[in-house]
């Protein structure tokens, strides 16, 4: 029996499932680095988060919506991994469960599921936890690769935390204090490979860049959002650094520390919550960069990537409304 079909009769091998699987693969290097530096704690947090996200999605779709299960499209796994990457290694597991609930049920499924959510689910989960449990969310474990099973927590400050502290203390305290604090800042190499305190997935710029390169190679994301996001931050911090000669603005430190790389490569490029056209993507990325800069330097928080991306997520429908490609044969004289 011959088939009747409408054109086109061939399809690109790139389907939703493969795209999502590629993102999971791209997240792997960062996960490996996290487990390497933070040991068993990291592994349990990542596995709990992924399992919790998949579970919530299954329960929601199966028992509430009574529809065909959607967990096989990998998107819950990505959300789970990204959420874990945004948490410290010492996070109590029941909090991870709550974070996963916020991410999957409130931020994603309540809006209609994959592709219809306005805000990045993992970031919603993280910000919810960050506001609800500020102590646990800022208890950074000191990296330690000698002892995998060591769960005895030694805390360490994040680079950005040190810088913020510097900001608060600089006016009041003595110069020696400042010098001491500056001394605590890890060197570039440490920050690049990830030997620094911080959330699980954000510490290693190297691993994230490797993942990003893989995504670009597989044409999962375009270069626009990460490039313009990082470039905006780099330009703003460089300008301030050159103008004020203040160590707090050192551009490379800002590029390599905190969640900037993770946010620029994996969060801001999330399909559902970023604009669709190239023009829109550029505006979105510059907005993210600008907001990150403002929050990092002029707010009470040391880190601003999650808030910046969430705020820009809210503008995506507006950006999409005004920035779209020019239609052939219109506009130009």
């Amino acid at each position: 029996m011959l088939k009747v079909a409408t054109a086109p009769h061939m399809f690109s091998p790139l389907d939703t499932k493969r795209l999502m699987r590629d993102v999971v693969i791209a997240l792997m290097p960062a996960a490996v680095v996290a487990v390497f530096f933070f040991g068993l704690n990291a592994l349990t947090v990542i596995l709990t988060s992924v399992a919790a996200c998949v579970m919530w999605e299954y329960l929601f779709v199966h028992y509430l919506l009574k529809q065909k299960s959607t967990i096989n499209n990998y998107s819950a796994i990505i959300t789970g991994m990204l959420l874990a990457f945004n948490l410290p290694a010492t996070m109590p597991l029941w909090m991870v469960l709550i974070g996963a609930f916020m991410a999957i049920v409130v931020a994603k499924m309540a809006f209609g599921g994959l592709g219809k959510n306005i805000f990045n689910p993992a970031l919603v989960g993280r910000v919810f936890l960050f506001i609800s449990f500020p102590v646990q969310m800022t208890m950074w474990m000191k990296p330690n690769w000698h002892d995998f099973f060591n769960t005895d927590v030694q805390t360490a400050a994040t680079t950005l935390g040190i810088l913020k502290h510097l900001d608060a203390s600089s006016s009041a305290t003595s110069l020696t204090h400042e010098v001491e604090a500056v001394h605590d800042i890890p060197n570039y190499l440490q920050m690049f490979v990830g030997y620094t305190g911080g959330s699980l997935g954000e510490v290693s710029a190297l691993a994230l860049l490797v993942g990003g390169a893989y995504l670009l190679l597989r044409r999962v994301i375009t270069w626009h959002v990460p490039f313009y996001y990082l470039a905006t931050m780099l330009i703003l911090t460089s300008a301030m650094w050159l103008l004020t000669d203040d160590v707090r603005y050192e551009p490379l430190t800002h590029l390599l520390s905190g969640g900037l790389m993770l946010g620029a490569i994996f969060m801001a490029t999330d399909y559902a919550t970023s604009p669709m056209s190239v023009k829109g993507k550029i505006i979105f990325a510059i907005g993210c960069g600008l907001l990150t800069f403002i929050i990092r330097f002029y707010s009470a928080y040391p880190e601003g990537v999650s808030f910046a991306i969430l705020i820009m997520n809210a503008f995506v429908p507006l950006i999409d409304k005004f920035y779209y490609p020019r239609v052939y044969g219109t506009g130009r004289k």
Binding site: T16, P275, M276, V327, Y328
Partner: peptide, 22 residues
């Protein structure tokens, strides 16, 4: 022709259209 799924707003169709449509 695989089964249709939900739009994930990836924007690939916008990038691909040679007329610049959405």
């Amino acid at each position: 022709r695989p089964d249709m799924m939900d739009c994930i707003r990836c924007g690939k169709c916008v990038d691909a259209c040679p007329i610049g449509l959405r």
